[in-house]
C-alpha cells in the first residue's frame, strides 16, 4: 500500500481467469472513480447522512466503516441511485449521477447487504438474467466468472440450494459482469465460515489488482485492515476520519521501552529530552513513548548515555479496531 492510495496488492493467487481491463470494458479513467460530494439524506426529522464527502480512486480498496446506524447503507443507496439525496451529489467517473442515471449500471457492480438472487433459477441462469438486463455481456464472461468464484460445478444448481458462502461468491461474480469501474461490497463476509471469509478476503485484493476500485462496507475490522488501502470512518452520518490504513494505524502507535531495575520516572525524564519524542507515559512500569517509528536508536542512545540499559524497545501499532472504537464510541451518559 502506498500513501497515494494506489493499490500494491499481492495475493500470491494466480488469476484463474482474466478479468481484463481497467474500469468498464478496459477503460482507463482519469480522476476518482467515485466522488461523494456533501451527501446529505434526511428522513423526516432524522438525518441519516450529514454532508458526507469522500472519493474512491481507481484500483484502490476503500474500507467504509461505521457502527450500526451510522449511515453506511443509506450512503451506498445514494451512490446506487436507490435513494435520492436531500442535498449533495454523486459523481461516477466524473459525471453527475443525477444527469445520467445509466452510470450506475455501466460503472458499478454491487452487493447490497446480502447477495439476493432469484431462488428458482440456477446460479448460471441468475447471471444470465443479470447479463440480459445490462446487455452486451458475452456468454463466455459468465463461464469465466463462474470459474473465478469456483462455482462452475454447482452452476446448474438452484440458487435456493446454495450455501451462504456460495451465495456470496455468486454475488461477487454478478458484480463483475460488466467489468465495472467500482465494486461495492456491503458486508461481504457476513455469516460466512472462516474458510469462506478467507476466500472472499482473497478475491477482494485481486479485484483491485485488476483495476477495479472497491468500496468495502464492513464491520469486520480485521478484514478491512487486511484488504483496504484507505478507510473512511463514519458515525451518525458524518465522516469522522479518512486516510490510508498505514497512517491510521501509525496514528495510535507508540514505542514501548522496558528499562528494568530503574525508577521509571527517571528513565522517562531522560526520554522526554530526546527531540523527536512527543510524549512519554508510564504504564505498569513500562514506558510508552509517542515518537516516530524509527526513533528507537535515538531513545536507546539517550538512555545509554545516562547509563540506563533498555531490555526492550519495540514499536507497537494500534489496530484498526482500537482506532474504530476510539473514534466511534458514544460518550457515556453524564460523562
Amino acid at each position: 500500500m502506498s500513501a497515494t492510495g494506489q493499490s500494491q496488492h499481492t495475493t500470491g493467487i494466480a488469476p484463474t481467469t482474466g478479468i481484463a481491463g481497467v474500469g468498464r470494458r478496459g477503460q482507463v479513467l482519469e480522476g476518482p472513480v467515485l466522488q461523494a460530494i456533501g451527501l446529505t439524506k434526511q428522513f423526516k426529522q432524522f438525518t441519516a447522512v450529514d454532508n458526507l464527502s469522500f472519493d474512491v480512486h481507481q484500483g484502490e480498496v476503500l474500507g467504509f466503516l461505521g457502527p450500526n446506524g451510522a449511515g453506511k447503507s443509506t450512503t451506498v443507496g445514494m451512490i446506487l441511485g436507490l435513494i435520492k439525496p436531500t442535498s449533495g451529489s454523486v459523481k461516477i467517473a466524473g459525471v453527475d449521477l443525477t444527469s445520467d442515471s445509466s452510470l450506475v449500471a455501466e460503472h458499478i457492480g454491487a452487493i447490497i447487504e446480502n447477495p439476493a438472487f432469484y431462488p428458482y433459477l440456477s446460479g448460471r441462469d441468475n447471471l444470465v438474467a443479470h447479463a440480459l438486463a445490462v446487455g452486451d455481456v458475452p456468454e463466455s464472461r459468465i463461464e469465466d466468472l463462474l470459474k473465478l468464484v469456483n462455482l462452475t460445478e454447482r452452476a446448474k444448481d438452484k440458487f435456493k440450494n446454495y450455501s451462504l458462502g456460495m451465495k456470496q461468491r455468486l454475488g461477487i461474480a454478478s458484480t463483475l459482469l460488466t467489468e465495472p469501474s467500482l465494486v461495492i461490497l456491503d458486508e461481504p463476509t457476513n455469516g460466512l465460515d472462516p474458510a469462506g471469509q478467507r476466500e472472499i478476503r482473497e478475491i477482494i485484493p485481486r479485484l483491485a489488482d485488476e483495476g477495479h476500485s472497491v468500496l468495502l462496507a464492513s464491520h469486520m475490522l480485521h478484514e478491512v485492515e487486511q484488504v483496504s488501502d484507505r478507510v473512511a470512518i463514519v458515525r451518525r452520518g458524518r465522516l469522522i476520519t479518512e486516510g490510508s490504513v498505514d497512517d491510521m494505524l501509525r496514528r495510535g502507535g507508540y514505542i514501548e521501552v522496558l528499562v528494568p531495575g530503574v525508577d521509571p520516572e527517571a528513565a522517562a525524564r531522560v526520554l522526554r529530552r530526546v527531540p523527536v519524542v512527543e510524549q512519554v507515559t508510564i504504564e505498569n512500569g513500562r514506558l510508552l513513548v509517542v515518537a516516530p517509528d524509527d526513533a528507537g536508536q535515538a531513545l536507546n542512545r539517550a538512555l545509554f548515555e545516562q547509563q540506563l540499559i533498555a531490555s526492550s524497545i519495540a514499536v507497537k501499532h494500534s489496530t484498526l479496531e482500537d482506532l474504530f472504537l476510539e473514534l466511534t464510541e458514544e460518550p457515556q451518559a453524564g460523562a
Binding site: 445509466s102 450506475v104 449500471a105 458499478i108 439476493a116 438472487f117 443479470h130
Partner: peptide, 15 residues
C-alpha cells in the same frame, strides 16, 4: 420478498 429489487434497479439504466 426476495430482496432482488435493489440489485435489479442497480442494473437498470433508469427506473
Amino acid at each position: 420478498s426476495w430482496n432482488t429489487i435493489r440489485p435489479l434497479l442497480a442494473r437498470a439504466r433508469s427506473r
